[in-house]
């Protein structure tokens, strides 16, 4: 705890605020890129039924892949092509995106698939055009699952970004890795607590956002959640 409450560690180029800032920056960039790739792709696969084989295989395969191994392999492969710091940042971001895509993709796909076919048929029958069915029916109805995918993905990213400190990426993982190198357990504990708090904060923030933006018609808050309605949270495999 000493490390955490020492004012000297709360300022400067490698102070805790800087580390939190870096951690957030990497995480949010990776999440944004992953969402930009995975949400439209999930919608496309869900609506058209094309490429469904990708979904099941991808989720399982990437869960089995050890992210530490993947991270280190990519750094060794990519870093020689880039000067200095980018050599570590870019492969790390690629791995973060790679790990964040499957939960968003599979949940978006499942969400779009789970939209009541009768509601879509009714919308079409009332003269909704394809785009309007998407924006007014399919997207709002699949929102709970899409957001749950984004939530899993963000936790995965925050967790993996911590590990990326091993290959010299900035962020809160630095405290853990540097603390280990310096045999400074209090520094490691400080890093662990901060990372855990960061993850908890974002998890609750996304839960709050979900409650705010998802229609109560979909969540049926008054009854016990039906097992099938909410899939098992994708575990953070880091």
């Amino acid at each position: 705890m000493n490390y955490l409450f020492d004012p000297a560690h709360w300022s400067g180029a490698d102070g805790i605020p800087t580390l939190i800032g870096e951690h957030l920056l990497y995480s949010l960039i990776a999440l944004a890129v992953a969402a930009i790739i995975a949400v439209p792709l999930g919608i496309y696969i869900g609506v058209t039924g094309k490429g469904v084989f990708m979904i099941a295989g991808l989720a399982n395969a990437l869960r089995a892949l050890p992210s530490v191994g993947l991270l280190i392999l990519l750094v060794l492969l990519i870093s020689p092509a880039f000067p200095s710091r980018m050599g570590y940042v870019l492969p790390s971001l690629i791995v973060l995106v790679l790990l964040a895509v499957p939960p968003i993709l599979t949940n978006t796909y499942a969400g779009v698939r789970a939209v009541d076919a009768a509601a879509v048929d009714a919308a079409k029958g009332m003269g909704f055009r394809t785009m309007k069915i998407l924006t007014d029916v399919q997207l709002p109805c699949s929102l709970p699952l899409v957001l749950s995918g984004i939530r899993s993905a963000l936790l995965q990213i925050i967790s993996t970004a911590t590990i990326a400190a091993y290959i010299s990426l900035g962020g809160l993982g630095r405290l853990l890795i540097d603390g280990k190198a310096q045999n400074d357990y209090s520094q490691m504990v400080a890093g662990a607590i901060l990372v855990a708090l960061l993850a908890l904060f974002f998890d609750q923030l996304l839960a709050f956002i979900t409650r705010r933006v998802v229609s109560p018609g979909l969540t049926r808050r008054t009854i016990k959640p039906v097992p099938a309605a909410e899939p098992v949270k994708t575990p953070v495999t880091v």
Partner: peptide
């Protein structure tokens, strides 16, 4: 096709209501 459908009321077996909209908003759809 879309304009044609807007001239014709359409009722189906399981109603096909929009689950994320209130009843009054469902009825206001058209």
């Amino acid at each position: 096709a879309a304009l044609l459908r807007r001239r014709i009321g359409y009722v189906i077996q399981h109603a096909g209501l929009f689950p994320h909209k209130t009843i009054v908003d469902n009825v206001s759809t058209m």
